[in-house]
Write a protein that binds this DNA or RNA. Structure first.
Lengths: 182, 182
DNA sequence: GTTTTTGCAATACGATCGTATTGTCAAGCG
DNA sequence: CGCTTGACAATACGATCGTATTGCAAAAAC
């Protein structure tokens, strides 16, 4: 056998290139060749790690989700021990909003993937929504309000991505909602 | 000159076919040939009415927006004279939510277009958001809450489209929010 | 009746796509 | 030292893409 290689790392390298292409030119521009070029590797190598384009897409989608999850976890644990529920919730929501340039790129990719998966009948959809919903509900005086809170966050993120809302507007709306709920 | 033809009608016919393709297989599947086939016309005819694929897309996007606008207007005027602000607002929001099969298809197309236009720098984006925002604000006890209301609606629509929320959940969350605001 | 112009169809062209095939080089095993 | 095998690279193939080109029937203009 030749040099053993960290498969996961190689796949992630390619997925990163995919996301750069998708953030810059949309999912339509994500072809095996483009991604290979963006990653600075050969088409053959991409094929070596992903048998089909779809496999590559699904993996990239997973990476995006994991990144978001990690961001949230990091932000929450940065709050120190025993934070107030409201502070935790606000941190969670702010973290997911596409406010800085990096999370904005991630948001664009996630949006593209959302439209992508909305059509695919063979759902690769994990139910991290249900999990998120449960977590939000546990922080809320009225657990039933979690559905609305999550939707509000998603909508705010949408409009920030689209440029119709500024980051300040989104944060203000979010805090106003927290004032109503707590 | 030969038989004069209603250009707008022909264009709309093609745009309708485009939307059927997009709703069924996503925007990726929207090619000139596919749309022509779905419309039951020749490729040449599509080219006759749209010089480029992008022109066709932009027109279809306009059609979707006009349809939504018309739906809202119709629903509002069906309320009769001098309706209460809260009733108007609820009608507006419910109308835009993708609850039935037709508006669900429209929502899918709109979502696909959202991801499509998010990348295009040469924005074809009209600011119907600002208009909608102003209208919502005029119905609300606290006009500043309009930003959140619009975002909530968008987010609810998103999750309903994605299948994570049921129509009942979305309506419940919406009514809960209206209870908070009125 | 001729001419002009619109409405469309057919086809061709070059680019790009996803993927299959094939070859090659290096590293570990016996 | 062979020999196998994993990690690529190169290229080929057929399909599909957007669009340009060409042709033609029919109706209005003259």
């Amino acid at each position: 056998m030749p040099k053993r290689v960290d498969v996961r790392e190689r796949r992630t390298l390619i997925a990163d290139a995919l996301m750069r292409v998708a953030a810059a030119q949309g999912l339509e521009a994500v072809s095996v060749r483009h991604v290979a070029a963006a990653a600075g590797v050969s088409v053959g190598m991409v094929q070596h790690y992903f048998r089909t384009r779809d496999e590559m897409m699904v993996f990239a989608l997973d990476v995006v989700r994991d990144r978001n999850q990690a961001r949230v976890t990091a932000a929450l644990s940065a709050l120190g021990p025993d934070p107030q529920p409201r502070a935790m919730l606000r941190t969670l929501l702010v973290t997911v909003l596409p406010l800085d340039e990096q999370s904005r790129a991630d948001g664009l990719v996630a949006l593209a993937f959302l439209a992508y998966t909305a059509v695919r009948p063979a759902g690769v959809k994990s139910d991290d929504t249900a999990q998120m919903l449960g977590f939000i509900a546990s922080l809320l005086p009225d657990p039933d309000a979690a559905v609305g809170v999550l939707a509000l966050m998603e909508g705010l993120g949408m409009y920030v991505l689209g440029g119709q809302y500024t980051a300040e507007q989104a944060l203000k709306a979010l805090d106003a909602q927290l004032d109503l709920l707590f």
